[in-house]
């Protein structure tokens, strides 16, 4: 099960605030709640049931309060802070921000950044790693690689010292598990999962 997170946006401009919130809703799935504030005062006066895991804050507001990280450590020491650059500020005002975005950041870039900050390496491996690869067995992966390389059932049987019947039953299982039947479809699967190179 993937964890779900909450996020807070502190931005005085309602257009930027709502726009950013909409982008995050459309392009990410890991946040169950997005809190929106127009000032630090409102943020500080909020009573948190679940403190946000990520805080996106307009950098101009940090000029008055560079220690926001410390304040948030009380709620959640792992809370990540992203600075939102809305003007041409000198870069040294980024003290407590781990990452920053600006008004021209693309939705995809924001989504990748948020994913990077919220999903730990362990989870990431579980999502993308070969080990939990849709439950194909090691033998099935070997057969899949051979099929993708263009080998015939007979050649695969010879290579792994199997009967042709066994090779065929592996292939049936691969098709069943992946939902992919054609050789070219399996080749695409092997390529995108890094099992073979182009």
């Amino acid at each position: 099960m993937r964890k779900s997170y909450s996020l807070a946006i502190v931005e005085p401009s309602v257009m930027v605030r709502e726009g950013l919130s909409k982008i995050i809703c459309d392009f990410t799935t890991q946040f169950h709640t997005i809190f929106k504030f127009d000032s630090l005062e409102h943020l500080y006066s909020h009573h948190w049931d679940t403190p946000p895991s990520v805080l996106i804050i307009n950098k101009l507001l940090l000029i008055g309060d560079p220690d926001i990280k410390k304040r948030f450590d009380i709620y959640d020491p792992n809370c990540k802070i992203i600075g939102l650059q809305s003007s041409l500020l000198p870069t040294n005002s980024t003290d407590c921000c781990e990452e920053s975005i600006n008004l021209y950041s693309k939705p995809n870039e924001i989504a990748i950044l948020l994913r990077k900050l919220t999903i730990s390496e362990q989870e990431d491996q579980n999502i993308n790693g070969v080990s939990e690869q849709y439950d194909l067995s090691e033998r099935e992966i070997e057969v899949l690689i051979s099929v993708a390389k263009g080998m015939t059932n007979k050649e695969i049987a010879f290579e792994y010292n199997l009967s042709i019947h066994t090779v065929m039953s592996h292939r049936k299982n691969i098709a069943k598990k992946t939902g992919i039947k054609s050789i070219s479809g399996l080749t695409v699967y092997a390529l995108i999962n890094g099992l073979i190179e182009k």
């Binding site: 992919i180 039947k181 479809g185 999962n193």
Partner: peptide
């Protein structure tokens, strides 16, 4: 039509992007 099925599965189940694509 069977290759369309393959394509659907690749896109839905195995699309390698970390970027969501509505």
């Amino acid at each position: 039509e069977s290759k369309i099925g393959d394509l659907k599965n690749i896109l839905l189940k195995y699309f390698p992007s970390k970027n969501p694509h509505p």
